[in-house]
Nucleic acid binder design. Structure first.
Length: 465
DNA sequence: TCTCTGCTCAC
DNA sequence: CAAGTGAGCAGAGAC
């Protein structure tokens, strides 16, 4: 299927020479494209062709996507400031760490090679050092050297941990620390990402040039990078609001499963409750490991689970993972029924849809090839959930943006990261904004379970969490 | 310069 | 074979 994804910048000129400068953009005009001007709406229709293939999609187009356009224009226009001095410091420390790792790895390997080449890495580890008898290979026949493989071999040879350290440091350096400052707009001094409104199959947004939806947070060094995202004025604040467990709440609501609904109504830790149910023990007897495994099962449910996939993720036997899934299905029968019903619907109609009627077509749902069909079945289960979450936050964005304009607030929405919204906060507006954002997010779509939103304020993006 | 591959970052 | 959605980087090779 060939189509041009809608980027707001397509409406305001191509990137590069043709692009209008930020202050030439008439936000109002762009907003009216969709809302009023039928003459221009056809352009949007062209760009949203996949959405409008069926009559049903008109609703998503008019009620979700069109009101969002001016919101995204505003967010791209505002941008976000970057603490380049902090990044420079991180870069220096990464350089030292990378150099040390490099030397150690060369010594352990007995020779120098290009550490950034997975091909050469595989040759060294498995062709020369023979770390394992039967190394896993990629589909092109190269030795596999990814994180999972190296982690599993950490005990066999210290070079594995050193490579993982090297990989992490060089990833952070090349993708974030060195690249982000290059993207600063010379006129505004800020980062202006491009949000893509119609590229993701599920209805999620995507972000590029730079992608601000994959800024590190998991590791200590990664969090340092997130700290470099700061308010535009010194002494200013960022406000971050994120949905708690949104996808599980959506599957609980859509499926109507009483056990999972009750867990959310009572406000208890959903992974703990799941562990208690699956292992058949009281809440206070659940071990860390049991909770952590149950958490992975909950994730697996959202992604469309297979016993094999879960076993691999959890590093447990296939029988154990099959037992976990079996127990899950009987403890949460509503979820199980929902999954079966969704797949049956997809088989009959060739598509699945979200709560607002956003469709995803699944041509492979009746494929005779089990692998291909399995992938389509997982899409059938995941898309309505991920897509409904996307619809919900898109509706919330339009609503909050409208409230900010109506109240003539100085606070601006600046980023969206799937289940999180980030605002450049005018400090004196904090109380009112908190209320507007919380209510806007909670009430975006009618749900049968409580929707929780965590809100934080801080002097940088990390602290706002 | 473009495309593919392998890898890794996020939700 | 075997967990959903994305984007970006470096290497490697085609053109």
């Amino acid at each position: 299927m060939e189509y041009s994804p809608l980027s707001i910048k397509e409406l305001i000129g191509e990137k590069g020479d043709e692009q209008k400068t930020m202050d030439q953009v008439d936000v109002q005009v762009v907003a009216e494209y969709a809302a009023e001007d039928a003459d221009v709406t056809w352009q949007l229709r062209g760009l949203f062709a996949p959405l409008l293939k069926e009559k049903n999609q008109e609703k998503v187009f008019h009620e979700v996507e069109c009101p969002l356009i001016e919101v995204l224009v505003g967010m791209e226009y505002e941008g976000i400031s970057l603490d380049t001095e902090a990044l420079l410091q991180i870069s220096e420390s990464l350089v030292l760490d990378i150099q040390t790792s490099e030397k150690t790895i060369y010594e352990m390997a007995g020779r120098e090679f290009n550490l950034n080449s997975p091909k050469q890495m595989g040759e060294v580890l498995f062709g020369e050092m023979k770390l394992v008898e039967k190394p896993k290979k990629t589909k092109t026949g190269q030795f596999m050297t990814n994180e999972q493989v190296l982690t599993s071999l950490e005990k066999k040879h210290p070079i594995c941990a050193e490579i993982l350290n090297y990989r992490q440091a060089s990833k952070l350096k090349s993708t974030y620390v060195d690249a982000l400052p290059e993207t600063l707009n010379s006129r505004t001094g800020r980062i202006h990402t491009t949000f893509h409104q119609a590229v993701a199959a599920t209805g999620r947004l995507a972000s590029s040039d730079p992608n601000i939806q994959n800024i590190p947070i998991r590791t200590e060094r990664g969090r340092e990078i997130r700290k470099a995202f700061i308010p535009r004025v010194s002494g200013g604040l960022l406000l971050s609001a994120d949905y708690s467990q949104i996808e599980l709440r959506i599957i609980a609501s859509i499926s109507g499963d009483p056990g999972m609904k009750q867990a959310f109504e009572q406000g208890v830790d959903i992974h703990l409750v799941t562990a208690s149910k699956v292992y058949g023990i009281p809440l206070d007897e659940v071990s860390r490991e049991q909770r952590s495994k149950s958490k992975m099962v909950n994730f697996g449910i959202v992604y469309g689970i297979s016993a094999f996939g879960l076993a691999q993720r959890l590093n447990i036997s296939r029988t154990e993972s099959a037992d976990l899934i079996k127990a899950y299905n009987s403890e949460y029968p509503g979820i199980h029924k929902y999954m079966e019903k969704t797949i049956a619907f997809a088989q009959e109609h060739g598509y699945v849809e979200t709560l607002t009627g956003r469709r995803r077509y699944l041509r492979d749902i009746n494929s005779r090839n089990a692998t291909v069909r399995g992938a389509a079945e997982r899409n059938a289960i995941n898309s309505p959930i991920q897509g409904t979450a996307a619809d919900m936050i898109k509706l919330a964005m339009a609503r909050i943006h409208r409230d900010l304009e109506k109240g003539e607030f100085q606070t601006r929405m600046i980023l969206q990261v799937h289940d999180e919204l980030v605002f450049e906060l005018e400090p004196i507006e904090k109380e009112e904004i908190t209320k507007i954002v919380e209510e806007g997010m909670k009430n975006a779509l009618p749900m049968d379970v409580p929707i929780e939103v965590d809100i934080g304020v801080g002097a940088n993006w990390l602290e706002a969490h």
